[in-house]
């Protein structure tokens, strides 16, 4: 199933459309915006893009190890399940805005959800 998801959703063009919407939502979400203070926007957008590519079932270089290391400093600052939930909400809202069918949104949410323990360092 997930093998075709990326193509069904529209490949890289779909990811590019989603990055701006998703990143804007994340930056304006008071629950999580503080974790993005001072980050370089271009580097961050590139990370968002690889995250969305991963969630869309596309080609990625995502490893659990990198996820742990990349978020370890945020876990120290108090990153927890509630923040992960907030990101998941923003992801779903982004996809709804792009009129992605609910069954595909569910598929992508499941892929994104699989990173939870790595992100939270558990």
């Amino acid at each position: 199933m997930s093998q075709n998801l990326y193509e069904r959703i529209g490949g890289e063009a779909a990811v590019n459309a989603a990055v701006d919407i998703f990143y804007r939502k994340v930056l304006t979400d008071d629950r999580i915006s503080r974790f993005f203070d001072g980050v370089d926007m271009e580097k961050q957008a590139a990370k968002q893009k690889s995250f969305l590519t991963f969630a869309f079932g596309g080609p990625h270089h995502y490893t659990g190890q990198a996820m742990r290391q990349g978020h370890a400093h945020l876990v120290k600052q108090g990153l927890n399940d509630s923040h992960f939930d907030a990101v998941m909400e923003n992801l779903a809202a982004t996809l709804q805005e792009l009129n992605v069918p609910p069954n595909l949104i569910a598929e992508m949410a499941a892929i994104a959800e699989s990173t939870r323990d790595d992100v939270l360092g558990r």
Binding site: V19, L27, T28, D40, M41, A45
Partner: peptide, 16 residues
């Protein structure tokens, strides 16, 4: 430049 980049993005400008 850094802070304006964020502000103009949040004001609706596309990253590209």
């Amino acid at each position: 430049v850094k802070s304006a980049k964020k502000k103009v993005f949040l004001a609706g400008a596309a990253l590209r």
